[in-house]
C-alpha cells in the first residue's frame, strides 16, 4: 500500500497590543471632534491649500503648519454625495478583527473647500435605490457619552432633503 507523505505544519495565534500617539495635530482634530463635534481642517500658510487631516507640514510645499487655532477652520459638516460602495461581502473589521456579515455603505463626500472624505452612509440610506450623485449630506455625531476621540465618533453621514 502506498503511504501518503505527511506535510507537517503548525499553527499559533499571536495577539499583539499597540498604542499609537496621535501628536498635537491629529490629536487636536480628534479631541475637537470628540468634545465639540467640530470637524477641523487647517490651511497651509505657504500654498494656501487645506489639509485634511491637519498635520505638521504641508505635504505639497513642506511649509510648517501652525498649531491650533492658527489657520484652523471648522467645516460646516455638510457636503455632497460623490459616490458610494455597497460592501456586501463579509469584511473583517480592522478595529476588532471580527467579521462583519451585514452589508454597509461607504460614501465619498465633497465637503467645504472641495475636500473629499470617506465615511459611512447611515442605516436609513441603506436602500441604495434612492441614492444619487450630488445629493446633500450632513455629518451625524455619536451621542457624547459614546465618543472616544476617534474618526468613528462621527456616526455616519445622512442624506438631507433639499
Amino acid at each position: 500500500m502506498e503511504e501518503r507523505e505527511e506535510r507537517l505544519s503548525q499553527e499559533r495565534i499571536m495577539e499583539i497590543r499597540y498604542r499609537w500617539s496621535a501628536g498635537p495635530y491629529l490629536g487636536r482634530f480628534l479631541a475637537e471632534l470628540r468634545d465639540k463635534g467640530k470637524f477641523y481642517v487647517v490651511r497651509c500658510p505657504g500654498c494656501e491649500r487645506f489639509l485634511l487631516p491637519p498635520r505638521i507640514v504641508c505635504s505639497t510645499c513642506y511649509t510648517r503648519i501652525p498649531e491650533y487655532p492658527d489657520g484652523w477652520i471648522a467645516l460646516s459638516g455638510r457636503g455632497i454625495l460623490l459616490d458610494w460602495q455597497r460592501v456586501i461581502y463579509p469584511q473583517m473589521d480592522p478595529e476588532t478583527g471580527e467579521v462583519r456579515d451585514e452589508p454597509f455603505l461607504h460614501g465619498t463626500f465633497r465637503l467645504d473647500h472641495d475636500l473629499l472624505f470617506v465615511h459611512y452612509l447611515g442605516p436609513a440610506d441603506l436602500d441604495e435605490g434612492r441614492l444619487q450623485e450630488g445629493m446633500k449630506v450632513e455629518m451625524v455625531m455619536k451621542p457624547q457619552e459614546q465618543r472616544e476621540g476617534k474618526v468613528t465618533d462621527i456616526h455616519y453621514f445622512r442624506i438631507v432633503e433639499d
Binding site: 460602495q85 480592522p94 474618526v151
Partner: peptide, 19 residues
C-alpha cells in the same frame, strides 16, 4: 492605513479596486 485616521474604514484591496 493610519490606525488613527482611516484604518477603520479600509476594505482592503477589494474596496480600493471597486472604487
Amino acid at each position: 492605513a493610519d490606525p488613527l485616521w482611516n484604518r477603520w474604514q479600509t476594505t482592503g484591496a477589494i474596496g480600493y479596486f471597486a472604487r
